[in-house]
Each structure stands twice: as C-alpha cells, then as structure tokens.
C-alpha cells in the first residue's frame, strides 16, 4: 500500500485527467467538479480503478460523490491513506 499526501494524489489525478483529455495539466482546475470536466463517466471510473491500483486500497463507492473535486478527493484519499498506514 502506498502512503500518499494530498498533494501527491492531486498531482497524480491532474496528470491522469490531462492525459485523458489531451490537455496541458495547467489547464485542469483542482477545484472544478468532476462532472464539469469534459470527462465521460466511463473514463472517470477507469481512472478511479487505476488509482486503486496505484494506492493499493479500494475507494468507497461514495468517495467521488461526497468529494466531487480533485482537491476534495485528494484530501480524502490522503486522510484514508494515513488512517490505513496508522492501522497497519
């Protein structure tokens, strides 16, 4: 399992989303809602699966719903990662 900071998750997500959209990472706003990005829901879930693969733990089904921006999701994942690290 990878222990990550919010900044690392944000950087990872911005890069992945930029790659999918064919845009420069600087054009992706971390405060934007996922459903406002020009990202198909299938693409978003594929990225979520890639993220689980990277992190080594499963994201809850409500993670993207209650943390609907890159910024909010990154903070949530960092918190989850820290809790899992402390419990290990």
């Amino acid at each position: 399992m990878v222990k990550v900071t919010a900044g690392e998750v944000q950087e990872w997500l911005v890069q992945k989303i930029a790659d999918r959209l064919g845009e420069d990472p600087s054009s992706i706003s971390p405060g934007q809602y996922f459903d406002e990005l020009d990202l198909d829901s299938t693409e978003a879930l594929v990225i979520a699966g890639e993220m689980e693969n990277w992190l080594g733990f499963e994201l809850g089904t409500t993670a993207l719903w209650y943390h609907p921006t890159i910024e909010a999701l990154s903070a949530h994942i960092a918190e989850e990662s820290a809790q899992r690290g402390a419990a290990a």
């Binding site: 299938t42 879930l45 594929v46 990225i47 699966g49 689980e52 089904t61």
Partner: peptide
C-alpha cells in the same frame, strides 16, 4: 478499453 486497463477499473465500472 485502453491497453493496460487494470481489473480494478472494470470492477469500478461494473459496481457503478
């Protein structure tokens, strides 16, 4: 789906 898609991704799609 793109080459290299992990099984976690199709699991996420199926769960949704």
């Amino acid at each position: 789906l793109p080459e290299g898609t992990p099984v976690q991704s199709i699991r996420k799609l199926f769960d949704a």
